[in-house]
Design a protein around this nucleic acid. Structure first.
Lengths: 154, 154
DNA sequence: TTAAACCTTAAAGTACACTTTAAGGCAAGT
DNA sequence: ACTTGCCTTAAAGTGTACTTTAAGGTTTAA
């Protein structure tokens, strides 16, 4: 069974123009056409598009996807190269996971500081993101000073 | 104690030009200057820069960082807005975590398919990313056919 | 005193991934 | 016949975040 570009677009939640762009970039080889030249997508194309969307959302560049497609077109002998690419990408994914964890910690810390301020408590000096709050509470004291002498601490 | 831009750059692993760019965009208020106009960074600035780098690496846009800075400059009364921004961002982080998990699953699946191929096994029909391999093994059979009749399945 | 190694600014350029625009073909319904 | 709605292409435009360039000022060591 074959799908029109609109059906593909709807199924993937991906703009038709983007799909055409991907095909033009060589990321989606061997798309057939009907007698009017309209694209016909097979389920396999949708599957691969979904994978590309997934990899793109997590930081893989189009150029790397292109490399993988080109290697795949060259046959099984390129599997070692493709394995190397995916293992490298996997490292990237782990690094991103760590970055997300760090960012979540920072956000939660910031939010807890807001709670402390709401309760009228003084936040700890050493915490990340605390200084910004302190500077805010200095703002009234800073009024009337020149820019040069303001001691805003982000 | 104050740091030059080079010292700040080295401590953060962030190009000096990027730091200047951030200051110009209003993300780093109240940086002092020495008598020659050279920037002097306090520890607080480095701390905030580190937070911005952390948030940037996890998808926060500069425009949102700018909003947060501007709100912070307006004092404690803007804490509800900043809380809303951070809670929204937290949702983004969770979504990204899910996307990473999905991508890792897809990568591991792909890698396991490579193993199966190495062992000469036929990969399961229904698995994500399998079709690409199949199409590769079809390549030899496809030779001699026109582009139109090729049935490459990505 | 002059070269190296910093620093400054403004502005232009780059990378990436779309996204939009313009111009037009085909088929089905009224 | 003609409007609607789908499709096509090539090319230009956009947004984001830097990054590089150009031109020049200051400090320090040889």
């Amino acid at each position: 069974m074959a799908f029109t570009i609109k059906e593909a677009s709807e199924r993937l939640g991906c703009p038709a123009h983007t799909i055409r762009f991907y095909e033009k970039e060589g990321l989606l080889p061997y798309i057939k056409r009907d007698k009017n030249g309209n694209r016909l997508f097979e389920q396999d194309h949708l599957d691969w598009l979904r994978v590309m969307t997934c990899f793109r959302a997590t930081g893989m560049k189009l150029s790397l996807l292109k490399e993988m497609v080109d290697l795949a077109l060259d046959g099984d002998s390129t599997i070692p190269q493709r394995k190397a690419i995916l293992n490298q990408y996997k490292e990237d994914l782990f690094r991103r996971q760590n970055e997300l964890t760090t960012a979540l910690d920072a956000v939660n810390n910031k939010l807890s500081i807001y709670e402390e301020i709401a309760k009228g408590k003084t936040p700890s000096e050493s915490q990340l993101l605390v200084k910004m709050e302190e500077s805010e509470r200095q703002q009234t004291r800073n009024e009337g000073l020149t820019n040069e002498t303001k001691n805003f601490r982000q």
